[in-house]
Design a protein around this nucleic acid. Structure first.
Lengths: 128, 128
DNA sequence: CTGTATCCCGTAAGATACTG
DNA sequence: CAGTATCTTACGGGATACAG
């Protein structure tokens, strides 16, 4: 039941709001989910997520500013840049994990028929 | 380390994306966080969150459409409406809880000096 | 390859006033 | 009190082309 660790000074919804402040937008949490698996290069991320370079660049810059990713330039021939999650962004793992779990288990039941590549037959045992 | 429950068919970032689909926007998760504590009436919610009735109405309608809240009209004198979370929205508790926890513990460290009403002295033991 | 610069658009979000 | 109508604005997000 939504407890807060030994403090009433900040309301729960304020805390959620704060977190939302950092991971707002359509992409930050998704980028984080990917980078939590392994580091990626710029284009790799762009391809994997299907996001245009402009957006990706902007998101990564904001996340770097919040110390959620590191940006490492590698001395390769055409120059490649590797992005990786930080110790701090790993503290967001519970959030990402919870979201991934929920997406796996409950998305179809709430939204209804999903994308064609996942024809789950509405196993809907729990009630509303 | 970001595991998925017995399936590789859907990538983690796809699952996160799906969840984001349902709880997108600035308010849904916050509304949920509040309603997970106890039911609220419309105006109560509006006051508590500081959100205009138009936005609140829209959000609540979408959430009702996704079966994340119930809307109950009470037979009181001026008519009051109570909103409450559903069994299904309670499956999102881990997400909300994770976000609330993170907000409590890590927001200041990432963003820097916070709002004046919470002058936490930067307990910053972990490294970047 | 890694980005940035423009341009563009849809919509999220807010203010205000009004109706049932 | 509960909500809707209208209007407006800002920003998120995308395509494309281009620069380092």
């Amino acid at each position: 039941m939504l407890v807060c660790p030994g403090s009433e000074a900040k309301s729960q919804h304020q805390a959620v709001h704060d977190t939302l402040d950092v991971v707002s937008g359509k992409w930050k949490l998704i980028i984080l989910a990917v980078l939590l698996v392994r580091p990626y290069r710029f284009k790799e991320l762009s391809r994997e997520l299907g996001v245009s370079p402009r957006i990706l660049s902007k998101e990564l810059q904001e996340m770097e500013g919040h110390h959620l990713v590191t940006r490492t330039v590698c001395n390769t021939r055409p120059v490649s840049v590797e992005y990786a999650c930080t110790a701090h962004s790993r503290t967001l793992l519970p959030v990402v994990q919870a979201m991934a779990d929920w997406g796996y288990l409950h998305y179809e039941a709430v939204v209804g028929s999903k994308r064609p590549d996942d024809p789950t037959p509405r196993r809907h045992t729990d009630r509303d």
